[in-house]
């Protein structure tokens, strides 16, 4: 079960839709893949859609947070979309606030938000 998370490119934005529950290895290889793709395509923005994810623990949250900081270092903005209510509540109760993370309700809003933020 060594599936990789597909990373799509749309103009200067990368779109990632995570469809399966992430195990630790998959989360780490996703981090690596995304950074490589950012490097090779010089994309300026990333949208990560989590609509299908029904749970996030502190490890996955940390990987996500790291991906966002690392992308920032490489000059790309990240918007996380589709965090489910149950996931948001659990994260908050765990004490994980993901303070500097930009979010949107769904992929469409996320792309709009990214566009706006890149214009500024």
């Amino acid at each position: 079960m060594r599936t990789r998370i597909p990373i799509l490119k749309l103009r200067d934005t990368l779109i990632v839709s995570i469809q399966w529950e992430l195990d630790d290895q998959m989360a780490l290889s996703f981090q690596e893949d995304l950074l490589n793709k950012l490097h090779s395509t010089a994309a300026r923005g990333v949208v990560i859609d989590l609509t299908s994810i029904d749970f996030i623990d502190s490890f996955i949250a940390k990987v996500l947070g790291d991906v966002i900081s690392m992308s920032g270092l490489m000059g790309a903005k990240v918007v996380i979309t589709g965090i489910q209510p149950a996931v948001a509540i659990t994260l908050i109760e765990l004490g994980i606030r993901l303070e500097d993370v930009s979010t949107a309700l769904d992929l469409e809003n996320g792309l709009e938000k990214l566009e706006r933020e890149l214009e500024d």
């Binding site: 996380i80 965090i83 209510p85 996931v87 908050i92 993901l98 949107a104 309700l105």
Partner: peptide
């Protein structure tokens, strides 16, 4: 504050 934080996470 927690509720507002959670609202931010879902994207609003």
């Amino acid at each position: 504050i927690q509720a507002a934080d959670a609202v931010r996470l879902v994207g609003a």
